[in-house]
Design a protein around this nucleic acid. Sequence first.
DNA 1: TACAAATTTAGAATAATTCTAAATAATTTC
DNA 2: GAAATTATTTAGAATTATTCTAAATTTGTA
Lengths: 134, 134
Amino acid sequence: MKTNQEILVQNGVSPSIQRLKIFSYLKATKSHPTAYTIFNDLKDEIPSLSKTTVYNVLKLLIAKRLVQEVRIEGNELRYDAEVREHGHFKCDVCGEVSDVFLNQPLNLLLNHSYEVKEIQFNITGVCKSCLTKK
Amino acid sequence: MKTNQEILVQNGVSPSIQRLKIFSYLKATKSHPTAYTIFNDLKDEIPSLSKTTVYNVLKLLIAKRLVQEVRIEGNELRYDAEVREHGHFKCDVCGEVSDVFLNQPLNLLLNHSYEVKEIQFNITGVCKSCLTKK
DNA sequence: TACAAATTTAGAATAATTCTAAATAATTTC
DNA sequence: GAAATTATTTAGAATTATTCTAAATTTGTA
Ligand SMILES: [Mn+2]
Ligand SMILES: [Mn+2]
Ligand SMILES: [Zn+2]
Ligand SMILES: [Zn+2]
């Protein structure tokens, strides 16, 4: 299995400490954090870290298709290092954002009169755990 | 066919001039405008209109499920009075956002371990017209 | 008309992101 | 390996979208 450092290098990204830590952080989590959360969680490990760097690195990783933006509610932007085609579910009660994989790619349901670059789908509602608590 | 005024009243929204014009504007367009575009396009017709009112009315119409937010790129929020389940395609070249309807509801493809409130799907790429121009 | 409730308004406050220019770090050239 | 060049990070200012706030206006009711 490739290391995160190798993935960066193979995609033409020189693996600075900041880039590697941000990418590894995203690879290790399924929580779909916001830029602010990423910054906040990493600033102890990299005391010099600046918010601008977080935004710069995210933009770079997105351009390289190693990370995707998740837009599921309001104008809150979240980030995800899982870039295989999948969707998201956000629970209105507990706020958690989880992955949703379909049996067949959404792609196949579309009339292809355009060139597709990115597909996302997002669902909101109430999650199982919050449903049973009620 | 119901008038927009009737739709508002039936959903418990008193039809002020501002509410009616904003709702009618959205009903009449397929362009998925932003709050700023709505404000800008209506301020000649309603010279007193304030941006706050646009935001207030949009929030109210969303709560009543008469309008939905479309989040297709970055943190740009667009609004849509088409509330039947459908998705969106945004062309990276010309920037246009158009509707995408599926043959079968996305709903059916999901394992229902949660209570679904809203489903959205968004596609980016290059539209037919921009493809042929190249 | 007079009072109360609902709605709109302008502008201030907030929050997320981008911009800018300087500082630091890494790489290349001599 | 010092000096020059290039890449990356940084702090803080600027910008932008949205929300908040409190006053003004409009609408409905007694
Ligand atoms: Mn995901
Ligand atoms: Mn639409
Ligand atoms: Zn939940
Ligand atoms: Zn196009």
